[in-house]
């Protein structure tokens, strides 16, 4: 194996490093002094429309120059040093395919443009199209493909040069459920092989299925960064909500209101359960445990309702 010149990456800490990055268009601030570092794994970029997700991806893929601050991808400035894209695969949300080319021609062309030889590019294109489940359609014109197939062609093109960093803008858009499951599996395998994946999506369930590491952007600011559970734990002003399934909700509710950690208890008699809010999740769990063991309450399940990505997202952008 030939080793790449490491010296140019020695000073870097992560695949992506943004330091004090701002981007504005006239009077409109798209990104406001954001700093982040992404080193490994899959990271989901989340935010409502107009939050600044696309601007951030465009900065990372060298399509925009920051108004202020520093963007580094593998230690290089993507705006002035396009050679860094030898190590970066980008799958845009927009169409971005040559409709008159066959899938194989298109993916091979992008392999050539990434510096692969004709032979390498062809081999890699065949392998990548197979990876995304398009091996039967390699010689078919991309223009005849469905949206989901085009999406997979773009993903194959983003992977053709075996990048170290994959930037995906809404990668699962248009995919049917089976293709979506397969794609999620592929992306996980790629991440396990050492590839860093940054993906933006507005479908929270998709991001949740892929990763628990997220970056939440809102109004050009990073609201939160890290694992979903960790972020939830930091939202101190929002009590945790739990659903407790029991055969005797009234009796359990009476016992729970005596627990200092419990803030409120609601009945959900249809489901024979209680909705309990608490600021201290650990204390509640311990109290329920004691009620079950010492007072003989029958509890069939105790499940958090708001440490999902959607709940965290709602809390943060509210």
């Amino acid at each position: 194996m030939t080793m790449r010149n490491r010296s140019q990456f020695e000073n870097q800490d992560g695949a992506i490093v943004c330091h004090g990055v701002s981007k504005w268009y006239g009077q409109v601030i798209a990104l406001n002094n954001i700093s982040l570092e992404i080193s490994a794994g899959i990271v989901g970029l989340l935010g409502p429309n107009g939050a600044g997700k696309t601007t951030l991806l465009e900065l990372l893929t060298g399509r925009l120059r920051p108004s202020r601050g520093r963007v580094r991808v593998f230690g290089m400035d993507p705006w002035t040093q396009p050679q860094v894209f030898r190590r970066v695969g980008y799958c845009p949300d927009s169409d971005g395919v040559y409709e008159k080319m066959s899938a194989l021609e298109f993916v091979s062309l992008l392999g050539r443009l990434s510096g692969l030889s004709a032979e390498e590019s062809h081999k890699s294109a065949v392998a990548r199209l197979d990876l995304v489940g398009l091996s039967r359609f390699t010689h078919q014109k991309v223009g005849t493909f469905s949206k989901g197939m085009k999406q997979r062609v773009k993903l194959a093109a983003a992977l053709v040069h075996d990048p170290d960093l994959l930037v995906l803008d809404e990668p699962l858009n248009g995919l049917d459920p089976i293709a979506r499951i397969k794609m999620i599996r592929v992306l996980r395998e790629l991440a396990e092989s050492g590839m860093v994946i940054l993906l933006s999506s507005h479908i929270l369930a998709e991001v949740e299925a892929l990763t628990s590491h997220i970056i939440l952007i809102h109004h050009g600011n990073i609201l939160a960064e890290g694992k979903i559970e960790e972020i939830r734990a930091l939202i101190a002003n929002q009590p945790y909500t739990y659903r407790i399934q029991t055969d005797d909700p009234r009796s359990l509710a009476r016992a729970l209101v005596m627990v200092p950690a419990v803030e409120s208890v609601e009945f959900d008699l249809e489901n024979s359960s209680l909705i309990v809010r608490t600021a201290e999740a650990a204390a509640l769990c311990k109290a329920v445990q004691e009620l079950v063991c010492k007072e003989g309450h029958m509890v069939t399940s105790l499940a958090p309702l708001d440490d999902s990505l959607e709940a965290v997202f709602q809390y943060l952008v509210k």
Partner: peptide, 20 residues
């Protein structure tokens, strides 16, 4: 672990970028 330590596992040679 820094990503570049992982990335070299798949790197298989230099690339010509001057004639794109």
């Amino acid at each position: 672990m820094p990503i570049y330590d992982l990335s070299y596992q798949r790197y298989d040679g230099p690339r010509r970028l001057g004639f794109l």
